[in-house]
């Protein structure tokens, strides 16, 4: 219980647009453990950006509670809320740097707000810029930087007040894959070395996959699934989970349908039996052929996770034998 830095209970958010009520979030319950990297994923419009803004009360919930270190944010005055926000850094998709001031002044901005002495501000900003690898850009203006550099400045700025948490709202969505992985590496480093809890909002499963410990999948304003990244990847239970994890999975199936009409199953490999020749053994056990239609594997935290779609033999008996073998070997599978 005390290990949770952020806890959300029965949260609901309704937006009133003209005469209409739009339910942005409903029945949200989640806990974010201190020192972890927590991912929130969903398609655009799912309500994830609203959710992250509840965590620093930029948006106030219609009902439900948001607890920061056990403290109910709705009980805080405006002034203490502002003080609390200094413990929660935030970075954005569009970086949101001050365009008219240079890099070091951007990093010093939160310290200026906190009335830190000027010499101390400069010293701290220089330290942070070194940490994010931009010491040589102190005097540059944001317009002179690349997207990745801008996000580094934003990260330095978010770290200025020594926050306990950093909220990342689609922080890598405007960046190319290479820059994305560099920024994620930096966030990982900050999480490990400075013990800062990180909350990541994204629509890219690859982001969750590469740095998150736990993940919540948001769909239609609700949490569809929540759990350890490894478990969710191994066995996504919901349609949206499968869609997000296996990307173009659905489209693939449709394409494959054209060329085959037999019974198909989907296998999920969780990395526990990657040393075993499962498919060969399955084929031998039934003494019949199967057709591999699709295969995909990815490495998460040293374990290989994968999925495969195979077409079973037409004759029922062999098909059953294969399924039995898979069951015996503890491979998760289902009909598609």
């Amino acid at each position: 219980m005390e290990n949770n830095i952020i806890e959300i209970k029965n949260l609901k958010k309704i937006f009133f647009v003209a005469e209409n009520q739009i339910v942005a979030l409903d029945d949200i319950n989640l806990q974010i453990e201190k020192g972890s990297i927590f991912g929130i994923i969903g398609l655009s419009g799912a309500g994830k950006s609203t959710l992250v803004r509840m965590m620093n009360y930029l948006e106030k919930p219609t009902c439900g509670e948001v607890l920061f270190e056990g403290m109910d944010l709705s009980k805080l005055t405006e002034k203490s809320l502002r003080e609390l926000r200094k413990q929660i850094g935030m970075i954005f998709q569009n970086f949101n740097l001050l365009e008219q001031v240079n890099v070091i002044k951007n990093v010093m901005f939160p310290l200026e707000i906190s009335h830190m002495k000027k010499e101390d501000r400069i010293e701290r900003a220089k330290y942070l810029l070194k940490l994010v690898g931009l010491s040589d850009k102190e005097k540059a203006y944001p317009s002179q930087l690349s997207g990745g550099q801008k996000q580094r400045v934003a990260i330095a700025r978010a770290l200025a007040t020594n926050p306990k948490v950093i909220l990342c709202d689609e922080a890598t969505s405007a960046l190319d894959p290479k820059t994305t992985s560099q920024i994620l590496e930096l966030l990982k480093k900050i999480n490990r070395e400075m013990n800062v809890t990180i909350v990541i909002i994204t629509h890219q499963m690859s982001v969750i996959e590469s740095i998150c410990d736990r993940v919540a999948i948001i769909d239609n304003s609700k949490i569809a699934e929540i759990g350890d990244v490894k478990d969710i990847f191994k066995n996504p239970k919901t349609e949206i989970g499968k869609k997000l994890i296996f990307g173009n999975y659905v489209e693939n199936i449709n394409e494959l349908n054209l060329s085959s009409n037999g019974k198909k199953i989907r296998l999920a490999f969780d990395g526990t039996n990657s040393n075993e020749p499962i498919i060969s053994k399955m084929v031998l056990s039934a003494n019949s052929n199967c057709n591999i239609l699709y295969a995909n594997a990815k490495e998460i935290d040293g374990n290989v996770f994968g999925e495969m779609i195979i077409e079973l033999p037409k004759d029922e008996e062999s098909a059953e034998k294969m399924k039995e073998y898979l069951k015996k070997s503890n491979v998760t599978f289902w009909d598609v």
Binding site: L58, R85, G89, F92, N96, P110, E112, I113
Partner: peptide, 22 residues
């Protein structure tokens, strides 16, 4: 940019600070 104003708010800036510094 509304995003910059939001960022300042997220950093705990008061409205007066947002006016004068942003």
């Amino acid at each position: 940019d509304k995003g910059v104003i939001e960022a300042a708010k997220a950093m705990g800036a008061s409205n007066f600070q947002i006016i004068t510094k942003v």
